[in-house]
Computed example of a mutant assay.
Amino acid sequence: MRVTSLSTLALTASTANALLRFSCSQLVVERLDPLVNPGIAPSPHVHQIVGGNAFNITMDPATPPPSQATCTTCQFADDFSNYWTAILYFRARNGSYIRVPQKPNVGFEQAAGGMTVYYSPYIGSRKSSVTAFKPGFRMLVGQQHYRTRQEAQKFRQLTYTCLQNMMTRTGETLDMPKQPCAAGIMSNVRFPTCWDGKNLDSPDHMAHIAYPTTGTFESGGPCPATHPVKIPQLFYEVIWDTTKFNNKALWPEDGSQPFVWSQGDATGFGNHGDYIFGWKDNALQIAMDSNCDFCPQLKSQSLAQGNKCTMSGHVREKVDGWLDAIPGLTPGIEHERSMNGSNTPKTDSVEGLI
């Protein structure tokens, strides 16, 4: 099976060397977060999770996912990692909400939603210069409570792309697009690429990782002395199918954009992503050492096989269909800091319009 490289699709600069680019279908959508809120069910806000079916309320670092999972939604069959982000909701003029579905990326049209995952070795050299993540490794990027541009700028490359077509890869913004996007909205989540070489996690799930001191990972920027070990650049692309909401007659009367993250953020500055490493044995290091795009050394599976990997949710609540409030949030309060939409009572039907 061919796992398409980003460079083959000409979606990055021509200087980019081979990298892993593969699809992970959606595993489950629910209020669960074993990284930030271990042992709590439900967690404060809804997430969409992809990867191995060992995802649980609590995930002990001492029992890595490969020892617990029986399948994965990812194309590489030895990848039992879990990757997750918040969910995007559309807020109608009458104050009700509905979950925005995800759609597959270019080259993965048969995938069941989910996201595209990238692992990039050092760009600019055919020789591997990155150390793959170790069993028990986990990390977070972004802060779900951020609502200002100044706050969001603390994280590099957590952005949005307003897709004019499925090949659009320019015009990234820190905040949510303000106009209808012809092919949907892509959220881009890029993780830091330097590690302290000692800790597999940290209390805030971020202190053990860092950005290059200057430049970027792509430009070969050096790691700080406190975090000297280069790790692969982990990158998520999630495409939200906002197209059926592009009729601006459905948008707030003041013209503000209507999309809200499941933690109650309509600015987009609260973009964030979570990761628990779960590759079997040394499969990821082999891929990084080989600097391969298709990596025939790795065990792979078809998109159809990945789509079949599912799991029952741990939290029983409605997350789909029209809702009076985003799950876990109080009606009328969840987006006060981030949105000035209409407060029209929930009496008008909008279902027939979309």
Rank of each mutant, 00 (worst) to 15 (best):
M1F: 08
R2C: 09
T4D: 08
T4H: 10
T12E: 11
T15M: 13
A18H: 11
S25L: 03
E30C: 02
E30Q: 12
L32T: 11
L32N: 07
L32A: 09
N37D: 09
H45I: 00
V46I: 10
Q48W: 08
I49H: 00
G52H: 12
G52P: 13
A54R: 01
N56Q: 07
P64E: 05
P65Y: 03
P65I: 05
P65W: 02
P66H: 10
Q68E: 14
T72S: 15
C74W: 05
C74G: 06
D79P: 07
S96V: 03
R99Q: 13
V100N: 05
V100C: 07
P101I: 13
K103N: 00
P104F: 04
V106G: 04
V106A: 14
Q110F: 06
A111K: 00
A111T: 01
A112T: 04
G113I: 03
G113N: 02
K127R: 11
K127Y: 06
P135H: 11
P135Q: 03
G136K: 05
M139T: 14
V141S: 07
Q143F: 08
Q144N: 10
R147H: 15
Q150S: 13
L158H: 11
T161D: 01
L163A: 09
Q164N: 13
E172R: 12
E172S: 12
T173K: 11
L174E: 09
D175G: 15
M176G: 01
K178Q: 15
P180G: 09
C181K: 10
A182T: 15
A183D: 14
G184H: 10
R190T: 12
T193I: 01
G197W: 05
K198I: 08
L200N: 07
L200G: 13
S202N: 12
P203L: 02
M206G: 07
T213R: 08
G215Y: 07
T216G: 06
P224N: 14
H227Q: 04
P228G: 05
I231K: 02
I231F: 02
F235S: 06
T242S: 02
T243P: 07
K248R: 14
K248Y: 00
A249Q: 15
P252T: 00
E253D: 09
S256E: 13
S256I: 05
P258E: 04
P258C: 06
P258H: 04
Q263C: 13
Q263I: 10
G270Y: 00
Y275L: 11
K280A: 04
A283N: 11
Q285A: 01
A287K: 02
M288R: 03
S290T: 15
C292S: 10
D293T: 11
D293K: 12
D293A: 15
D293W: 07
C295D: 02
P296Y: 01
S300W: 05
A304G: 06
C309E: 09
T310S: 11
G313S: 14
H314V: 12
E317T: 09
V319L: 11
D320H: 04
W322A: 13
W322C: 13
G328T: 10
L329H: 01
L329T: 08
T330Y: 04
E336S: 10
N340R: 15
N340I: 14
S342P: 00
N343R: 08
K346Y: 02
V350P: 01
V350A: 01
G352W: 14
L353Q: 09
I354Y: 14
